[in-house]
């Protein structure tokens, strides 16, 4: 009887021990962010975030195995040194040197992002990787084939099993792992963040720039993520047949609307706009002050007193740019845990 009691005790100790372990894991590894960030939009739910899962996602992100001819990885178009935008090319090159028709956006703070792509067509981060993997000019693969390749790869079989348990690899696990990596890409250590946390102070021009920015730009590029994730027309001249959000909804009133991009790390991610038409921030600001083109869907924030555009002096523009430079997060772009 006593022996049984001891076993029973041991059993409880074991349970207690594992739960204790879990707590420790949590504090070591998880989504950390400053208190002025809102609650993340993405809920991990069934996709339990673990260090191993994140590392598996990272391995997949850098592995050209996801493309049909093993030449292109996610990282080919999303480079850490550029805050996971492309290497300052206007459009990205995929398999066989094929060129896409939009500029590769930067990738960070994706756990807060409710919609994806310039046109907002993707409604959930977990299914985001499905698009580049199967796009003809990006990775040109089928999901079925990617899964087959991973199943034949002893290293991946073992890694998927240790993260997701002893079951055959399915696309859900591939998506879960990539999502763990993508959501962990938090950029929150720019000079602006250090300023918000009271660690550094702004120069006079940076401070002025922030105030002008708040008055002129923040209605769409809202702090602290520098986007409100809405889809809007910001008055770009219509150059091609990219209808943006209208392509998704087929509603005329959504034509030429694009997702408001975050302006964090903006100095690193030129060229700018969905088609990469502007090379410099000066060009972008000139666009907002005198380049706005009228369109029925033009956002009302870009019309003041019946006049198109945001009125800004050259000095104001320069101060905004000085402020935008404070959004570069050098810790993020050099953080070794995000690299291969």
């Amino acid at each position: 009887m006593i022996r049984h009691k001891i076993r029973f005790l041991l059993f409880f100790l074991l349970i207690w021990g594992t739960s204790c372990q879990k707590d420790q894991d949590k504090s070591d590894f998880g989504l950390a962010y400053p208190d002025y960030f809102p609650e993340p939009y993405y809920k991990f739910g069934k996709n339990t975030l673990t260090k191993e899962g994140f590392e598996l996602g990272r391995a997949l992100f850098f592995d050209p195995i996801l493309s049909i001819d093993s030449t292109i990885s996610c990282a080919s178009c999303h480079s850490q040194g550029h805050a996971f935008a492309d290497h300052n090319t206007r459009m990205s090159f995929g398999i066989d040197g094929k060129m896409g028709d939009r500029n590769s956006p930067a990738m960070f703070n994706l756990a807060w992002q409710p919609i994806f792509m310039w046109d907002g067509g993707i409604n959930h981060i977990e299914v985001m990787p499905f698009a580049p993997i199967t796009n003809d000019v990006e990775m040109g693969e089928t999901l079925e084939n990617v899964i087959e390749k991973l199943k034949k790869h002893p290293k991946y079989v073992q890694r998927f099993q240790s993260v997701f348990g002893e079951k055959p690899i399915e696309s859900q696990q591939l998506f879960y792992a990539l999502t763990q990596y993508m959501t962990m890409l938090v950029s929150d250590d720019s000079k602006y963040d250090q300023y918000r946390q009271g660690k550094v102070s702004f120069t006079k021009d940076e401070e002025d720039g922030l105030q002008i920015f708040k008055a002129k730009c923040a209605s769409c590029h809202t702090e602290p993520l520098f986007t409100d994730f809405s889809l809007r027309n910001n008055g770009l001249e219509i150059l091609g047949d990219d209808f943006g959000f209208g392509r998704i909804t087929l509603h005329e009133e959504d034509n030429y609307k694009f997702k408001v991009p975050s302006l964090r790390n903006i100095a690193l991610t030129y060229p700018y706009m969905h088609d990469g038409r502007f090379r410099t921030l000066e060009q972008v600001l000139d666009h907002y002050s005198q380049g706005i083109v009228s369109h029925p869907n033009l956002d009302k924030n870009l019309i003041s007193n019946g006049k198109l555009g945001i009125p800004m002096s050259d000095v104001e523009k320069q101060k905004i740019i000085t402020f935008l430079q404070t959004l570069t997060d050098y810790t993020f772009i050099s953080n070794p845990i995000f690299s291969e």
Partner: peptide, 8 residues
């Protein structure tokens, strides 16, 4: 049976 570019 899932659209990649227009989730659904």
């Amino acid at each position: 049976m899932f659209w990649s570019w227009n989730s659904g």
